[in-house]
C-alpha cells in the first residue's frame, strides 16, 4: 500500500468528482491492480453518498420574520457606520490611534489646568543668623518622616523660618 500513496490525491479528487480525464484513466488502471485502493475508493464514494444524501433541513416559519424584526431594530449607530466597514486589523489600528489621541488630549488638558507651582528659591531670601541650624534640623525631619512631596529644596523653602515669617506678615 506504500506505493499507493501517490494515488491518494487522485483518489480524493476522483471521489469529489473533480478528477480530470487523464487522472481518472490513471487511477482506473491502478485500481484494476490494487484491491485495497479499489476498496478504499468504493467506501469513500459510499461516504460521500451518505453525506450528500442527508436531507435539507428547513428553519421554522418564524425565523424569517424574527430576522426581519431584529434587522429593523438594529439601527446602526454612527460609530458602526463609521467603523463598520473596517476589517478587524484596520479596526484595531483605528482603535489604537483613537486611544493614543485620547491619552494625548487628556494629558494636555491636565497640564494646562495644573501648572507646576513656582517656588522662590530659599537663597533669594536673606537668611537670618541661626537659621542654618534650624534648616538642617528640618531637613532631617522631612527625610525621616518622608513628608516631602516635591524636591528637598522646595520643602526646605516651605519649612524655613523665613517662609514662616513671610507668611505671618501677610496675615
Amino acid at each position: 500500500m506504500d506505493g499507493c500513496r501517490e494515488y491518494q490525491t487522485i483518489i480524493g479528487t476522483y471521489v469529489d468528482g473533480t478528477a480530470s480525464e487523464a487522472e481518472v484513466a490513471l487511477l482506473r488502471a491502478h485500481l484494476e491492480e490494487c484491491a485495497a485502493c479499489a476498496r478504499e475508493v468504493r467506501e469513500l464514494l459510499r461516504v460521500r453518498g451518505l453525506v450528500s444524501g442527508l436531507p435539507t433541513l428547513r428553519p421554522s416559519p418564524s425565523l424569517a420574520p424574527a430576522v426581519a424584526a431584529r434587522l429593523r431594530a438594529q439601527r446602526l449607530s454612527w460609530l458602526e457606520r463609521l467603523f463598520g466597514g473596517l476589517r478587524p486589523a484596520e479596526f484595531r489600528l483605528a482603535a489604537v490611534v483613537a486611544m493614543a489621541l485620547i491619552v494625548c488630549i487628556g494629558v494636555g488638558v491636565f497640564v494646562v489646568n495644573h501648572p507646576r507651582p513656582t517656588v522662590q528659591p530659599a537663597a533669594s531670601v536673606a537668611a537670618p543668623v541661626g537659621a542654618t541650624a534650624a534648616t538642617g534640623a528640618t531637613d532631617e525631619y522631612l527625610q525621616s518622616c518622608r513628608l516631602s512631596h516635591g524636591t528637598l529644596d522646595q520643602d526646605r523653602a516651605y519649612w524655613s523660618p523665613d517662609a514662616v515669617q513671610l507668611a505671618s506678615y501677610g496675615q
Binding site: L57, L63, L71, Q74, L76, R81, G85
Partner: peptide, 22 residues
C-alpha cells in the same frame, strides 16, 4: 442542534448587516 442553528442564523445575519461595509 436545530434551535441553536436558528439563533446562530440570526446572529450571522445581524453580524453581516453590521459589517456590510466591509
Amino acid at each position: 442542534d436545530p434551535s441553536d442553528a436558528e439563533d446562530l442564523t440570526q446572529d450571522a445575519i445581524l453580524r453581516a448587516h453590521r459589517a456590510i461595509r466591509s
